[in-house]
């Protein structure tokens, strides 16, 4: 039987938005124009909100979690008649997944920034293309944001 965590909704990191789930009456207005839900079978913001309400933590916090299918278009929160922000609930769930080391490899690219200040890696080709267009030179070194960004405390899946 599915394990239920009664404090699941309360424990979501973005507390104030996550608390909005309480107001959900499962009307599906958030689903109607959700681009990710238009391509079955997996994704449905109403269902994600319901699982949070029911405390079905294990169904959402898993390596192959459905939350990564969200297009982050914010349509759901604009359309919800109850002021629920499903997208923010999804963002909160993603943060929990990351903290537990359950990030999918595709999300790891963004982690370049911790080393180089940029998501994209600098190269000679970049310099050449910029020069061709008469654009100012880009500094290659990073490390400017290291001191503020810090390291994640929990090891993530791509380090393992």
């Amino acid at each position: 039987m599915a394990k239920v965590n009664l404090d699941f909704a309360k424990g979501l990191p973005r507390v104030e938005e996550a608390e909005t789930v309480i107001a959900c009456f499962q009307c599906s207005a958030c689903v109607a124009e959700c681009p990710a839900a238009a391509h079955p079978p997996r994704f449905n913001p109403r269902d994600i909100v319901l699982k949070v309400l029911l405390g079905l933590e294990e169904e959402l916090l898993r390596k192959d979690s459905v939350v990564w299918d969200c297009a982050t278009c914010y349509t759901c929160m604009e359309r919800c008649p109850q002021g629920v922000r499903p997208i923010e609930v999804i963002t909160a769930l993603k943060n929990l997944l990351a903290a537990r080391g359950m990030l999918p490899p595709e999300a790891a690219a963004a982690e370049n920034i911790r080393r180089t200040d940029r998501v994209i890696v600098h190269s000679e080709a970049v310099d050449r293309h910029r020069k061709e267009l008469g654009l100012p030179h880009l500094s290659a070194e990073g490390k400017r944001i290291e001191e503020v960004m810090g390291c994640r405390n929990t090891p993530s899946s791509w380090d393992a």
């Binding site: 982050t72 993603k94 999300a107 920034i113 998501v119 400017r144 944001i145 960004m149």
Partner: peptide, 17 residues
């Protein structure tokens, strides 16, 4: 300036950062 940190998946993986 550094990269902005995109708001779709990075905000989702590490909100504080």
């Amino acid at each position: 300036f550094s990269c902005c940190l995109e708001p779709w998946n990075f905000k989702g993986t590490d909100l504080a950062a």
